[in-house]
Write a protein that binds this DNA or RNA. Structure first.
Length: 490
RNA sequence: GCCCCCAUCGUCUAGCCUGGUAAGGACACCGCCCUUUCAAGGCGGCGGCAGCAGUUCAAAUCUGCUUGGGGGCGCCA
């Protein structure tokens, strides 16, 4: 059997979309599974919208996800001569013709036709223009495009997921293959490249189904062998419309920056529209996915992106991950959020952050949550949740409790969780009260929150100095007639 | 409007091709257990074959129609 060659061919007009990432993933997985090649091609024929930055972002995103390519990236903008040659070939064969209609004229005719309740297709106005007529139009300064002549009949192709798909050729109109700026259009460049690059499987979103008959006709006109086509379902938002900004950010970089692990996003994306069939198994390594992957068990219907499930999956990966690895991601987040400058980071910081991670990795869904919801680890001035402050530190005897805690904790030299716990419990027993009587106010005093990790572990990670300072500050704050922070709001 | 694709719990899906075991799992949700709070973990629960015909002894599985959803109809890709 011939070598399996798949490709991912994004156009660099923005970030890598989750849908694109999943398309890349399936192409990559099939190539790996079949010991073939995965090729990257940048479709930058839209001069106005393509940017170099976008190329960088897309490449970074692919690499971050571990979707490494074996060939490329090829840039269509560097292959213009090739497209011109094939365009000329079609023209010589009489399968493509010059069209001088301007976009404005076409729009006018389109409106007119539609107004009569008819479907617009290019009216072949420029089909069979005589050489003198063309020359005259050129003299007028008109630019021309090249249109592909659609023969009568029916076009059928086989989709690996759906079987035969038929289109009446009348539904297709003579589409443009070379633009007036000399650039090829998508359908044309795509076919020429896929053929020349010997792509064996074209795996793309099913929003391309209607392009496929046009491309098939092009393959036939150019005398190229047909690849296998597989149109994979789209990824939709909660409201079942195309996943877009309205659903939160659909970009791979957004999830990277929020502290999602690449292996988790990879796993989640792979499980959209695909399942191995094994029950109770949701967590798959890249290798496990490659081993099990096949186009045949990709579903045909669109999949809704479910952040809850991604969050769950990411939390599973976080719990299993190495602390140093997680720490390096946290570090980037802290820098990006302005908690610290890169040049200020010391090994002591890292040591501390690793402890924070060790303590918190079981209770977070993504790393940025630490900075957002457990800021008390990264700031000196603890912010108090108003309800926590009022309910837990509002009691009559709280000042006394905090005072006792401060005195007791000050005497402990070996500031470790088991020792701290023993001390607090002992103190509670001596007073004849439950340990919770001390635990809750202490937690709020040092973290500002009612919820969080185990108190004694928290105290150990924060360290004696911070703990004492925070208790003192809390004591002072409850003495004040009016709570000074969080003016306004809830 | 025209063309194309799709249809199993709220969501991701297994089962469908090769009709026949109480339609299974995961996320979410709800309870209980554990527990200093929150998580995690354990146990349990809720919840689905879009509808209507047809074929058949038997239909989630095969066929048709209806409905619903998605996509396309650019000198964008």
């Amino acid at each position: 059997m011939a070598e399996v060659r798949t490709r991912f061919a994004p156009s660099p007009t923005g970030f890598l979309h989750l849908g694109g990432a999943r398309t890349a993933l399936f192409n990559w997985a099939l190539a790996r599974k079949e010991k073939g090649k995965f090729i990257l091609r940048i479709e930058d024929t839209d001069v106005a919208r393509s940017t170099e930055e976008a190329v960088e972002v897309i490449l970074d995103s692919l690499k971050w996800l571990g979707l490494y390519w074996d060939e490329g990236p090829y840039f269509q903008s560097k292959r213009l001569e090739i497209y011109r040659q094939y365009a000329l070939l079609l023209q010589e064969k009489g399968l493509a013709y010059e069209c001088f209609c301007t976009p404005e004229e076409l729009e006018e005719r389109r409106q007119k036709t539609m107004a009569q309740g008819e479907n617009w297709r290019y009216d072949r106005k420029c089909w069979n223009l005589k050489e003198e007529e063309k020359e005259k139009l050129r003299q007028e300064g008109r630019k021309s495009v090249l249109r592909f002549y659609i023969p009568p009949g029916e076009t059928t192709f086989i989709d690996m997921l759906r079987g035969e798909v038929h289109f009446q050729n009348e539904e297709l109109d003579d589409f443009v293959i070379m633009k007036s700026d000399g650039m090829p259009t998508y359908n044309f460049a795509c076919v020429v490249d896929d053929a020349l690059m010997k792509i064996s499987h074209v795996i793309r979103g099913d929003d391309h189904i209607s392009n496929t008959p046009r491309q098939v006709l092009l393959y036939q006109a150019l005398g190229f062998p047909l690849p296998q086509f597989a149109h994979i379902p789209m990824i939709l938002g909660k409201d079942k419309t195309r996943l877009s900004k309205r659903h939160g950010s659909p970009s791979v970089t957004y999830y990277r920056d929020q502290g999602y692990l690449p292996e988790a996003l990879f796993n989640y994306l792979a499980r959209l529209s695909w399942a191995s069939g094994e029950e109770e198994k949701e967590i798959f390594s890249r290798e496990e996915i490659v081993e099990r992957f096949s186009i045949e068990n990709v579903t045909k219907h669109a999949a809704v992106f479910d952040l809850d499930k991604l969050n769950w999956m990411n939390s599973v990966y976080i719990r299993q991950a190495d602390n140093k690895y997680l720490c390096s991601i946290l570090e980037e987040i802290l820098v990006r959020k302005g908690r610290i400058k890169p040049e200020e980071i010391t090994s002591a910081h890292r040591e501390y952050w690793e402890k924070v991670i060790d303590l918190m990795k079981e209770r977070i869904k993504y790393l940025a949550q630490l900075e957002e919801e457990a800021s008390y680890f990264f700031t000196e001035e603890v912010e108090f949740d108003p309800p926590a402050f009022e309910q837990v530190l509002g009691g009559e005897e709280v000042e006394e409790i905090l005072k006792d805690c401060e005195e007791m904790l000050s005497q402990i030299e070996d500031f470790r969780a088991p020792i701290l716990e023993e001390a607090v419990r002992e103190m509670a027993e001596k007073r004849g009260v439950k340990a919770a009587k001390f635990i809750h106010p202490l937690r709020v005093a040092v973290s500002g929150k009612k919820v969080g990790p185990g108190l004694f572990e928290l105290l150990e990670v924060l360290g004696k100095e911070k703990v004492i300072k925070r208790i003192q500050r809390a004591k002072n704050l409850i003495k004040e007639p009016r709570f000074p922070q969080n003016s306004g709001g809830e």
